[in-house]
């Protein structure tokens, strides 16, 4: 599904990713771990196509097609989803309006009929119930005044509603207490499927107790330094990132 080959990327003229190689197949969950500032969010932005994140070398193949020249909204409509580390507040725009726009934009792209108000309400109601999300979150402006946990839950709701093929979750665990972490990871686990590839980005091992990955990669100094099974996460938890030339925090 996702094949990253020798990916180099710069931000503000500075090279952050220095030759990433990574293959993620449908049905797999990969974890990317790494110290702060190692380029984890940069990788997620490069995959999703944020302005200012320049690919200077290499390729990001998504189902065989190179994403690098594609507008972010097209990537999204094609099934690439990013759960943001810091979800953005959009004052005055009700969450439900935003979700409806997004769903219908994606449906239009796929040549499907747009959902009308009734169909949409039915769908969104089912999704919020499945994920145990309070209905009032739909009426409030997108992420405005949301607690850290609510913001992350909102990301998962969007993911559930948009039904992506490739989901990148950037530090979905940061700032969550244990209960919130459980709710969010349950949500992600519900969305695991044979057709979907998931890339979980995290700094800490604890998220991986809840979302158990098939593979773990260590990102440091702009490169994947090591790859392994889920036991690699435990090793990192014990030893920290010191062996990758990063001081313990």
């Amino acid at each position: 599904m996702l094949e990253i080959k020798n990916l180099h990327a710069t931000v503000g003229g500075k090279e952050i990713l220095k030759g990433i190689n990574l293959t993620v197949n449908a049905g797999e969950v990969h974890a990317i771990m790494g110290p702060n500032g190692s380029g984890k969010s940069t990788l997620s932005y490069v995959i999703s196509g944020k302005d200012g994140y320049e690919v200077t070398e290499g390729q990001i193949l998504y189902n065989g097609i190179d994403l690098t020249e594609m507008e972010p909204e097209i990537r999204a409509a094609e099934g690439v989803f990013l759960a943001f580390q810091y979800p953005v507040e959009i004052p005055g725009v009700p969450n439900v309006t935003f979700l409806k726009e997004a769903v219908n934009a994606v449906r239009r792209h796929r040549g499907e009929d747009e959902l009308d108000a009734m169909q949409f309400v039915k769908m969104i109601k089912a999704k919020t119930e499945e994920l145990g999300i309070a209905k009032d979150m739909l009426k409030r402006a997108v992420n405005v005044g949301f607690s850290g946990g609510e913001k992350k839950r909102n990301e998962i709701l969007q993911m559930a509603v948009l039904n992506p093929k490739l989901a990148v979750l950037d530090e979905t665990d940061s700032g969550l207490d244990i209960d919130a972490l459980k709710i969010v990871s349950d949500g992600v686990n519900q969305l695991r499927s044979d057709e979907r590839a998931i890339l979980v980005i995290t700094h800490y091992q604890r998220l991986l107790d809840h979302i158990v990955p098939d593979f773990v990669h260590v990102l440091a100094h702009g490169k994947i330094q090591r790859s392994g099974g889920k036991e690699l996460a435990f090793e990192l938890e014990e030893k920290g990132y010191a062996e990758y030339g990063v001081a313990a925090e």
Binding site: K50, P72, I90
Partner: peptide
């Protein structure tokens, strides 16, 4: 970018943000 990442084209994204700005 947040809106576009959800599949919403730029002009529509601007319209949403502006409508939010004008909501009052």
């Amino acid at each position: 970018f947040y809106l576009r990442q959800r599949g919403i084209p730029t002009e529509k994204a601007i319209a949403l943000v502006v409508n939010g700005f004008c909501r009052e």
